[in-house]
Structures are given as structure tokens and as C-alpha cells.
């Protein structure tokens, strides 16, 4: 742990030498600050932060509960903002790289907002054989959204699922948790408009 006086001294040295080619740049090694601490103090009253904190406590801060806690956090926030990952990493005493690598490994977790409304197109085999690609093409043509993209106003996000297990109803899409089966590209667009009143060519993020 670095004490404040020492950090101050380093700051002075860095400042002094900042114009010189011979900056003792390794000193910046001692100037790290904590991202998680500040953010969590600012948001301590946010019920979503409280929820994540409670879940960590319930799981006894066991590192092997990481995925469970990430599920809770994603349910609360809709996605996983970086400060929350710092918060979880600190709580479970897990290295940041380990938390981040787990989050990016599983496609269920998202670092970016998925949009207020989501349109999840199933691209499982049955849906693929029955025209899921046509739906994706239509969404791209009419809304300018590719898989994983969100409209500028964050109203709508398009995602693809590997298989939602509704193969008997192929092709299927999931609009905000409601499964719609045997849909045509035009149906999907109509349903989306109903949900979001999104304008065509809304532009992508």
C-alpha cells in the first residue's frame, strides 16, 4: 500500500521530469487508483448495486459463485457496466482479468446495453432452414441494425440466439421475452414498430 505522502512525492518527480526524454516513467507504476471504490461510493444507494451486494453476501463471497452473481448483476442492470465488474471482482477477491475473461466468454453476458427493447432472432438449424436469415436481412435493410447492434436512441437492440428450442414454430423471434413463432420478416417489423415506434433507418450506435 502506498501512503499519500509517497504518492505526492512521485507526482512531483513526474511533473519535474515531464519534458525530459528521460522521464522515469516507471514511477507511473506507483500511481494507480481504484476505479471500483469511487463509483460504488457514489452509487451506494442504487437499489441495483444493493442487489448485487446482497447476492455476493448470500453466496458468502465464494469465488465459484461468480457466474451466479454476474447473472444477478445483468438482470438488475440489463448489461454489465465496467464499474460493477470491478465491484464484483473486489467483493469475491478475484483478479480483474479473471472476471473480465469470464464475462466475455459467455455470450449471455453483455458489456454494452442491449437496448430498451430487444428483438432476438433465433438462428438455430430449424429456423435457419425456414428463413431466419431473411428476417435478419430485413432488420438490416429496414432498420440498419445488424446482430448485436442497438439504435442510437437505445430503443431497440437486435440479437441472435443459437437455438431457443422452439423449433416446432420455426422461424421464431423473441421480442422482450415473448416468443413469436412462424413469423415472416414483415411481421417482425410490424411487431417491432408497435413496441418501439422506432423510425426506419434510425441509425446505429
Amino acid at each position: 500500500m502506498m501512503n499519500a505522502a509517497f504518492l505526492k512525492m512521485i507526482n512531483v518527480i513526474v511533473e519535474e521530469f515531464s519534458h525530459s526524454y528521460l522521464v522515469p516513467s516507471f514511477l507511473t507504476l506507483f500511481m494507480k487508483s481504484s476505479v471500483a471504490g469511487d463509483w460504488v461510493t457514489q452509487h451506494a444507494k442504487d437499489p441495483r448495486v444493493k442487489l448485487v451486494a446482497a447476492k455476493m453476501k448470500k453466496e458468502n463471497y465464494r469465488p465459484d459463485a461468480l457466474i451466479e452473481i454476474l447473472h444477478t448483476a445483468q438482470n438488475a442492470f440489463g448489461h454489465l457496466p465496467l464499474p460493477i465488474l470491478h465491484f464484483i471482482g473486489k467483493g469475491l477477491k478475484l483478479p480483474g482479468s479473471r472476471v473480465y475473461s469470464t464475462v466475455t466468454f459467455y455470450h449471455f453476458f453483455s458489456l454494452k446495453s442491449k437496448g430498451e427493447h430487444t428483438c432476438l432472432v433465433c438462428t438455430g438449424t430449424a429456423c435457419y432452414v425456414k428463413g431466419a436469415q431473411a428476417i435478419l436481412n430485413e432488420l438490416e435493410d429496414k432498420l440498419g441494425l445488424k446482430i448485436g447492434e442497438v439504435t442510437k436512441d437505445n430503443k431497440l437492440g437486435v440479437q441472435a440466439a443459437r437455438c431457443i428450442g422452439a423449433c416446432g414454430l420455426a422461424p421464431a423471434v423473441v421480442l422482450d421475452d415473448e416468443v413469436h413463432g412462424k413469423v415472416l420478416p414483415a411481421d417482425v417489423l410490424a411487431m417491432i414498430h408497435e413496441k418501439t415506434n422506432a423510425h426506419e433507418q434510425a441509425g446505429t450506435e
Binding site: P95, G96, S97, Y100, S101
Partner: peptide, 21 residues
């Protein structure tokens, strides 16, 4: 130290330091 880990999967895996910082 566990500074390094691997993010992503498949052919898109990358070595990362901390939170991909």
C-alpha cells in the same frame, strides 16, 4: 499476480490485462 487472462472465445480470443485495460 494474475495480471493476464484470456478474453473472448474461438478465433477472437485475446490476452488481456486486468479489465481489458
Amino acid at each position: 499476480a494474475h495480471n493476464w487472462d484470456v478474453m473472448g472465445r474461438g478465433h477472437e480470443v485475446r490476452i488481456i490485462s486486468d479489465y481489458h485495460t
